[in-house]
Every structure is written in structure tokens, then in C-alpha cells.
Design a protein around this nucleic acid. Structure first.
Lengths: 208, 208
DNA sequence: TTATTTATTTACCAATCGGTATATAAATAA
DNA sequence: TTATTTATATACCGATTGGTAAATAAATAA
């Protein structure tokens, strides 16, 4: 029997005038602006300029400024910042954190992208009208921290992290280094300087 | 002979209508708004509300928004954040940093003041029109870092810090912890959590 | 008292903010 | 062709931004 929701024939061309821009490219351009200027520091005027698209087209494609920011943020997490999730596949907790901080040093000082972490910087402070975005970024940071806690608990079970280690504290310590490095990067710290910071923080790894 | 610029007789009352508000109190109120909302996140409307003064009086007393911010920042440095300078009077480098990070933990989590460090948060990202303020805050951070470098060099001369220590790297490490703690505090970290981070960072102190 | 000086209040300014109504252009469907 | 659908460009919206002109109030000086 034929499926009523059969969409296999949707190879047919869409009905009206085709979009004149590549939506992924536009989203990446928006990401770069939000990443370097923050949420409130980015104006719709600057976005139209950077995307090469007029405002009504942006609103038709992405909703509004806040929605565009959310989609840009999702792209940031899945794209340039994906290493933060991937490092958890390292075999030991120590290797996870080493890989995390060293890659962060590279990432934050990459001259082809804005300096520092978008999730840390995009709305640390903001006006009354943007507290929703501010809290969403806080929630992102909290979730990342919790994922490190879970990884450390796993490491304790697997035996590569001492039982007496406080996973919450260790995760908060690692997150703090990461966030501090982000501030340093946006203040002009070089790759070498960031690597030296990461090295120093890693000297501090708990042992039996 | 009488000094032409003799101002000793300036006990005389000023000429016109007296200021109806206490300028120091107003500046402190402005500091609190800028501290919690950042430079761009603070509007003149919110300032008039917080200071209880109309805009023309603010402009007459402080210049403009940018100047008011600068004066509030100077008050921040000389007042609540004065401990950052004072800790350098501790006798050893190790004591300087310990005192610095533990006091920062207290300071950032003080419930009577905004969370985190104004110099870190007030303009990490901003719109095109505020890059001057952004760079001034960067310069503040750089100066603080340099003052720690100088203190560590002194400690090496005084013999309480090993000669092979790289003062630049150590100062950058300490600054990174501080800045990371600031982000943590503005994300809701408690005093105890911040103290645990500081303790962990201090475990890492260089020895012979 | 009257003149002068300074601060406050009110009302306003141009520019910019995020967001949209309207008209037109470019595609497919019939 | 004509109708329908969707995207574009232009021009505009009310609200808010930082900042000020003008009128009034409160003090001292003469």
C-alpha cells in the first residue's frame, strides 16, 4: 500500500521564486559576526552587510535576530567547537582534558576565526532585553561542565582516575581554565602563550 | 608676597544652585549598574533610574556615558577591587597569589555586589561604537598582569621564587584562573566552588 | 531688592534599534 | 498564456539609543 506521507517524489522543484543565496553560507557568515561581536553587539544592519542579504530575506529564512543567533550557535557547537564533545572519546580522563585544553589553545588563537569562545563571550553581560540569550549561554556552559563530570565518573569506574577525586570540582577547574583561556585569547594571547597556560594547568593532574 | 593662585580662601560657598545629590553616591550607583550589565548593556535610562538623577544632571556632573563609565571603573579599581593591588604586599610570591585567588573567590561571590569582575565582563564583546572602551579594559587587564610579572621578578631576587620560573607565564596562568573564576561566578558558582578552584590552581605552585 | 550663577526639570533631537508592509521579480502549475 | 507561489528590494514602522535646548528653581553677590 502506498504511504500517504510519501515524500520520495519531492524531487520536484519548489513552487515559487528560488532563494538567491546559500542558506548555510549565510548562517556561517552570521556565526562569524555573532562570534566576534556578541549577541547585542551585533546589529541587523551589520548582519545584512555581512550576509549580503536584505533584512526581509533574513527574517524569512531564519525568523528573527534571536532565532538566527540560536541557529548560528548550534552551528558553532556542531562545527568549529565540535572538538569539545569529541575529546571525550579519548581513552583516559587525563587524555580527555589534555586533548581538550591543547585543542582549545589552537582553536582560540586560530587567525581565521574570531578569538575566544562564543559561548563564553557572546552575552556575559547584556541589557535587560537579552537575559534570555544570556541564560541560554549559561545553560550551554553548565551542560558542557556536566558532560565532563560524567566523563570523569566513567574514568573512575574504568580505573584511570583515582576514586577520591571530586569530579564536580575537577570539571569546574577544567571549565575555569577553558573560560580563562577564552578571555586571554580575546585579549590577544598567542597560541604559544595559551599552550603554556594549558601545560601549567595540566601539571596539576590528580594522582594517587 | 601673595600667591595669585591662592585658593585657601575657597571655603566660601559656591555661587549658584547647589547640587541636589551626592556625587560619590551617584558614582557608586553607576558603578553597580555598569558592573552588572556591562558598558553597552547599560542604558542612560537605566542610569537615571538607578541614580535618581535626570539625564542633564548626569551629563553636567560626569560628561557623557563613556566618561561616567571611566569614572565608575576608576572607583571600582580604587574601591572594591583594591585588594588586587594590595595583595602584592604579601611577603612571598606564593602568599601573594594565594591571597589574590582566595580573596577573588570571596569577592566574586559577594552577594552584596554584582558577580564577577567588571574589568573582565563589562565589554568582552561589543558593537562597533564601543571598541575604545573594550580596548581600555584590555589595557587594564594587561597592566594588572604586568604588575604580577614585576612582583614575581622581585620574588626571584628576594629568593622566595625559583630562578628558573618564567614570570610571564606564571602571571598569565594566575590571570587566566582569575578570569575563569570571574566567568564561573557570573554563571552562578558559589563561594565554596570558587575556593575549591583556587585551591586546585594553587596546588600547582612551582618548587625547586 | 536685583543681578548673576549654577542645577534641575521638561521636552525634545537625530540616529539607530529590531522588525515589517508593500510592491515587484522570478519561478512552477495549469 | 495566465494563475499561483515564493523571494526579493524598497521604504517604512514605533521604540529606544545617547545627548541637549530651553525654561525654571535655588543659591550667592552686590
Amino acid at each position: 500500500m502506498a504511504d500517504i506521507n510519501d515524500n520520495t517524489k519531492s524531487i520536484t522543484k519548489p513552487r515559487g521564486r528560488p532563494q538567491a543565496f546559500n542558506q548555510e553560507d549565510a548562517l556561517e557568515a552570521a556565526l562569524n559576526v555573532f562570534w566576534s561581536r556578541g549577541y547585542e553587539g551585533t546589529s541587523m544592519a551589520e548582519l545584512t552587510e555581512a550576509l549580503g542579504i536584505n533584512k526581509p530575506s533574513i527574517y524569512a529564512a531564519f525568523g528573527n535576530k534571536e532565532e538566527l543567533f540560536r541557529q548560528a550557535l548550534a552551528r558553532y557547537v556542531a562545527g568549529p567547537a565540535a572538538f569539545v564533545t569529541e575529546v571525550k572519546n579519548q581513552v583516559t580522563a587525563r587524555q580527555v582534558v589534555e586533548s581538550f585544553l591543547l585543542q582549545a589553545a589552537d582553536f582560540f588563537s586560530n587567525k581565521n576565526t574570531p578569538s575566544g569562545c562564543m559561548i563564553v563571550q557572546a552575552a556575559l553581560t547584556c541589557g535587560r532585553g537579552s537575559t534570555v540569550v544570556q541564560q541560554e549561554l549559561m545553560a550551554y556552559r553548565k551542560r558542557y561542565e556536566e558532560s565532563f563530570i560524567a566523563r570523569f565518573e566513567l574514568a573512575k569506574i574504568q580505573g584511570d582516575l583515582p576514586q577520591q577525586v571530586n569530579s564536580q570540582q575537577l570539571a569546574k577547574y577544567v571549565a575555569t581554565i577553558h573560560q580563562g583561556m577564552s578571555v586571554q585569547a580575546s585579549s590577544g594571547a598567542t597560541r604559544e602563550e595559551l599552550l603554556a597556560i594549558a601545560d601549567m594547568a595540566l601539571k596539576n593532574w590528580p594522582t594517587n
